[in-house]
Design a protein around this nucleic acid. Structure first.
Ligand SMILES: [Mn+2]
Ligand SMILES: [Mn+2]
Ligand SMILES: [Mn+2]
Ligand SMILES: [Mn+2]
Lengths: 217, 217
DNA sequence: GATGAGATTTCGGCATACCGAAATCATTGC
DNA sequence: GCAATGATTTCGGTATGCCGAAATCTCATC
């Protein structure tokens, strides 16, 4: 069991617990992978048989040690490719995901490591996500979710969730980029939206966006 | 019909007529692709239904205009990738084939063209095979097969068939590389092997090898 | 402790791409 | 002309990964 499908499943499972640790359900996986629930149930059964996940029927889905290792390897590949596309081929940060999603399955370890080395073995991708090292080590920066930040909090952007290309384009235009300095000016109580100061002005960010940006503590 | 399987089939069909024009049979395709004859028959039927090949039962297999265009595109991708691996990632010319065979299906046109541009839009791959241009134009150099060369013929190596990695390694060690100057010293009548002078000495090359090397006229 | 809503799983089915064995065809030698 | 040979095709079958509909389970609520 080492198919591209298996690689994508363990990556999706890993993704779910990367920034906030909660167990994944089949329907969440199905939504993320764009598949029917029944498909996920069946595949999870196969992954369990292959020793990549723990799963009792109706229970949570969790990676085994082996599954986590495969996921980390795959996350490394994905993020190295994204970084390479931006750094060397002029892609914008909202354009890299789909290409990386395919390429991550097609590169040998040798080639991937050569690409990573040519980039100076980067430790984070264009969205601020940590790139696992060759040996599987992951160093996650301390970060505060913008939605949870205190009023008056000032910090640099450490990470932006890369799920929504349109949001990434909007943020780039609004002066919110990796390492940009932000300050939390205010929260509108019942709207859930936040007023934020950037280098160039102030923006109102809705709750979805506030759930997608992490700042230094 | 645009699967990686279809891409490999049209490429294999194209390959057969690239350096000497003879029609392909299902068994030859099966041998080259490492598949059963029956598999090839079935797939050729599907390719014909998709308009990529002409084929009457028991007849020859030929690419349609559309099939040839797909094949040329695929050949370009394969050879650009091979060149990139050698030029930028330290692969030897006998190591690139398998990696390119997979990668050729996973790169977008945008990325492939960016890679080609970063290499200066090369016109030949590490084995001397012509790299089709973005628009499908192919420029094949004039060349004489070593096996057909006159006694006393002198020329530079223009192309070496890349099918056999072991042979490529042997040739590299024998001083036969792209652009190396060779002279045909003699032919041993009934053995079919040829005596050839390289920059560093003389070598005896068997009939298989003599069928794999092309020289300037 | 029963009930019902919502999630999960099971089940029958489909598409692609492969295989080996059996049937069929084309051609060559007689 | 006819048979035998070797290539080609047909046929039944497999593996993977997907789907929708139906059955089943869990858990919160009463
Ligand atoms: Mn993927
Ligand atoms: Mn990313
Ligand atoms: Mn291929
Ligand atoms: Mn080549």
């Amino acid at each position: 069991m080492q198919s591209t499908a298996a690689e994508d499943y363990v990556k999706a499972i890993y993704h779910h617990t990367e920034w906030q640790p909660e167990p994944v359900t089949p329907s969440q996986l199905a939504a993320r992978l764009g598949l029917a629930n029944s498909t996920v149930t069946e595949m999870v059964k196969k992954l369990a048989a292959a020793g990549l996940v723990h799963h009792r029927p109706y229970g949570a889905i969790e990676l085994t040690r082996e599954g986590a290792a495969l996921a980390v390897r795959q996350v490394r590949r994905h993020r190295v490719v994204e970084t390479w596309l931006v750094e060397r081929h002029g892609y914008d940060w909202d354009e890299v995901h789909d290409e990386a999603e395919i390429l991550e399955h097609a590169l040998s370890d040798r080639l991937l490591d050569s690409i990573a080395a040519s980039l100076g073995d980067p430790v984070r991708d264009p969205h601020g996500d940590p790139i696992p090292a060759r040996d599987g080590t992951v160093t996650r920066p301390d970060a505060v979710l913008l939605a949870d930040a205190q009023l008056g909090h000032e910090g640099a952007v450490v990470r932006i969730a890369d799920d929504d290309p349109a949001m990434l384009r909007f943020l780039a235009e609004s002066g919110v980029a990796l390492d940009a300095a932000l300050a939390v000016l205010g929260q509108k109580p019942y709207s859930g939206s936040m007023q934020v100061r950037t280098a160039t002005g102030t923006v109102d960010l809705g709750p979805d966006v506030a759930q997608s940006i992490w700042l230094t503590a």
